[in-house]
Design a protein around this nucleic acid. Structure first.
Length: 421
RNA sequence: GUGGGUGUAGCUCAGUUGGUUAGAGCGUCAGAUUGUGGUUCUGAAAGUCGCGGGUUCGAGUCCCGUCAUCCACCCCA
């Protein structure tokens, strides 16, 4: 396929039926739940000044170093397609000033990362995220985790696992890095090549290296919390206690690390087996970032919607399960009947009834087939005989029964059906 | 960015050691004593065998390149 013109860009996909119905279902369910938790939607631009991301996520992170879609606009400004949602929301919050001090915001939309596509990893993917600003208490962390878990449960996700850890306060970060280096120094030669590099650049990353050799070494050194002040440890304990009260199953995992620099205190991840190598469904954390002169502090999460879809589809859920079912299909024979059906179709639609018909003058059999294919509840048949008698046939496609009725009765019946369904 | 698998009809895939006009199932469309769907039967349409080059009398099949796609690594949603 030479098809530059026809195919979407690598790692980006069109979303259409039947999948789109599942997407819309997820969004509908989510919006209802988010409203219950009193979160409101903000739609920020998909493109931001590059500095919005580099300053908040951290210059040295993988996302910033090698995964961003960055380009220059005509005025020579460096712009970036958002690789995640939090930074843009924080920019919005900082810009909104006092009005947004204790904002509770959610967002949903596409994110972009220039990575090699694989199972569960796309260049354009979609996240639903929520941010809760203003409260420095672990209660806010607990609330937002409760919301996230609620969403997954409402969508019908089974068997997910919630693990959390703390990154400590900003002051703790350097102490943790030094502590890890000191503890690992005797074993340095035994670490893998990647971890050799990480030792200097970002020792925290060694903690969640998946290689068995590194794991064995890491398990011998003290958990990262050992290097933190009491405040960080107390914070995590309080959060764990709150989650217990809310009956949210969570395990503390001292080896959990998340890649972005803006995190303080709590970080967490929700995984699901059977997703392939990318098993993270969602993540979150408490963060602190500088936006202009303001320090924005909050706690938030992001859920990868493609991965939610993948899990649900693995559980046998199908987009067609959420397809709308047309109430009635109009079938006609002859030009005059066709015209009258056009009019009838319009008045049905104006009354909120899903109505459809074939517009290309096909045979009655073909029209019936189309009605069946669209899974219509009813067919209204208007042929020459009915034209003479001034009647319509109303056929139920489920039972196969059919009766001859006049226009007012047809309308009444279909309106009743709409109210029932 | 590194490595591996795969590109044949709208979809899922066959296609023998290279050998005539490239096949199946599903789907689509049309018919089965003419006004009625689903089941069944019959028929039809539909392919630059990803693209470019090479080897050969001859390439869907072999070789090289390229693009796309899937999967893994890195990292994350």
């Amino acid at each position: 396929m030479s098809g530059e013109a026809l195919q979407p860009i690598r790692g980006m996909s069109d979303i259409a039926a039947p999948d789109i119905q599942l997407w819309q279902h997820l969004e509908r369910v989510a919006r209802d739940i988010l409203a219950c938790y009193h979160f409101s939607e903000v739609r920020t631009p998909i493109v931001e000044y590059t500095s919005v991301f580099t300053r908040s996520l951290g210059e040295a992170t993988d996302v910033v170093q090698k995964e961003m879609y960055t380009f220059e606009d005509r005025g020579g400004r460096s712009l970036t397609l958002r690789p995640e949602g939090t930074a843009g929301i924080m920019r919005y919050v900082a810009n909104a000033g006092q009005d947004a001090q204790d904002a509770r915001i959610f967002y949903i939309g596409p994110m972009f990362r220039a990575e090699r596509p694989a199972a569960g990893r796309r260049r354009q993917f979609h996240q639903l995220g929520a941010e809760c600003m203003g409260s420095p208490s672990p209660a806010a962390d607990a609330e937002i985790i409760a919301l996230q878990v609620h969403l997954l449960q409402a969508w019908g996700i089974k068997d997910f696992k919630l693990e959390l850890n703390t990154r400590g306060l900003p002051d703790d970060h350097a102490r943790v890095a030094d502590g890890i280096r000191a503890a690992l120094r005797p074993h340095r030669a035994d670490l893998c090549d990647d971890c050799q590099r990480r030792f200097d650049e970002n020792p925290l990353r060694i903690i969640d290296c998946k290689k068995s050799g590194c794991r064995a070494i890491v398990e011998q050194i003290p958990p990262v919390t050992e290097y933190m002040g009491t405040e960080a440890r107390k914070y995590l304990q309080e959060l764990m206690e709150l989650l217990r009260q809310l009956e949210i199953p969570a395990t503390a995992n001292p080896y959990l690390v998340r890649g972005l620099d803006y995190y303080v205190h709590t970080v967490w991840e929700i995984t699901h087996t059977g997703l392939g190598a990318q098993d993270a469904l969602a993540g979150g954390g408490r963060y602190q970032m500088q936006m202009g002169r303001q320090t924005c502090e909050g706690v938030g999460f992001a859920i990868g919607l493609e991965r939610i879809l993948a899990v649900l589809q693995g559980q046998g859920v199908n987009g067609t399960d959420f397809a709308r079912r047309p109430c009635v299909w109009l079938v006609s024979q002859g030009e005059a009947a066709f015209r009258e059906n056009m009019l009838l179709m319009q008045s049905l639609r104006m009354r909120g009834i899903e109505a459809s018909m074939d517009l290309s003058g096909r045979s009655m059999k073909a029209q019936m087939r189309a009605a069946n294919k669209a899974n219509s509840r009813f067919v209204v048949i208007r042929g020459e005989e009915e034209m003479e008698r001034g009647t319509f046939q109303l056929k139920s496609m489920d039972s196969g029964t059919q009766e001859e009725l006049e226009l007012p009765e047809i309308m009444q019946r279909l309106i009743q059906e709409r109210e029932l369904s």
